[in-house]
């Protein structure tokens, strides 16, 4: 496993070197590689997608400037440097801004799921898919496990004890549930795509039919 870690470190080192050499595509690669992860982390920290996006832009700008100026002391730990920069910018921003309200770290975690971030349609779809997933589970115990783990604050050890599940099975249930959920969502996306394509096709046929009728009538 250490080889993967070393590969990552050497990739980071090479990326930093290329940015310092003035390679513009290297800057694009950094933004491409870290942009999505940064947004995810900042969205969880701030609980506000717009604010998270602002902070991401700010973080990437600071990181690129510091990299160009040779201020990244340990290029092997580029990810750690980017994370620290983002968190420091977040903390500085929170200190001066009232927009965070009185969030505590626990709320920070939960705020990522705040209302109004997703359209009602997506929310309903999420619920429907989760219900389908729950319906597919054979054991009541597995359903209870998922609910207690994701919604409760019980310690995983207590959940295992109460439900008489060994920790290996516990993790397997959690992992499989997420995997299955991703499959279900992928299928739903595909269905939606097919549906949209079909509607488009029907629309084109309709337009074609109408214009053909119009042409034949006008002759």
């Amino acid at each position: 496993m250490s080889s993967t870690v070393e590969t990552k470190a050497s990739d980071y080192r090479r990326l930093v070197e290329r940015i310092q050499e003035g390679d513009p595509s290297a800057e694009g690669e950094l933004v491409e590689s870290f942009g999505a992860g940064l947004l995810m982390m900042l969205r969880r920290l701030t609980g506000n997608p717009t604010l998270a996006d602002d902070l991401r832009q700010e973080t990437l700008a600071v990181v690129l400037t510091k990299t160009r100026n040779g201020e990244v002391r340990n290029p092997d730990a580029l990810a750690g440097f980017i994370r620290s920069t983002a968190r420091n910018l977040f903390l500085a921003d929170r200190r001066k801004e009232k927009r965070y309200g009185e969030l505590d770290p626990v709320t920070e975690h939960k705020a990522a799921h705040a209302e109004g971030q997703l359209s009602k349609l997506i929310r309903d779809e999420e619920v429907a898919t989760v219900r389908r997933l729950l319906g597919e589970l054979r054991l009541d115990r597995d359903r209870e496990l998922l609910i207690r783990y994701y919604l409760g604050d019980d310690h995983p050890r207590d959940i295992c004890r109460d439900l008489d599940v060994d920790p290996d099975r516990f993790n397997r249930v959690l992992f499989r549930a997420r995997k299955r959920l991703r499959e279900l969502w992928r299928k739903a996306e595909k269905r939606k795509h097919l549906h949209t394509s079909a509607l488009f096709f029907v629309g084109v046929l309709f337009l074609f039919g109408t214009s053909a009728t119009f042409v034949s009538l006008s002759r």
């Binding site: 929310r123 999420e126 619920v127 998922l146």
Partner: peptide, 8 residues
Amino acid sequence: RLQRGLSR
């Protein structure tokens, strides 16, 4: 999404 869906 699982957490959100379950919660709802």
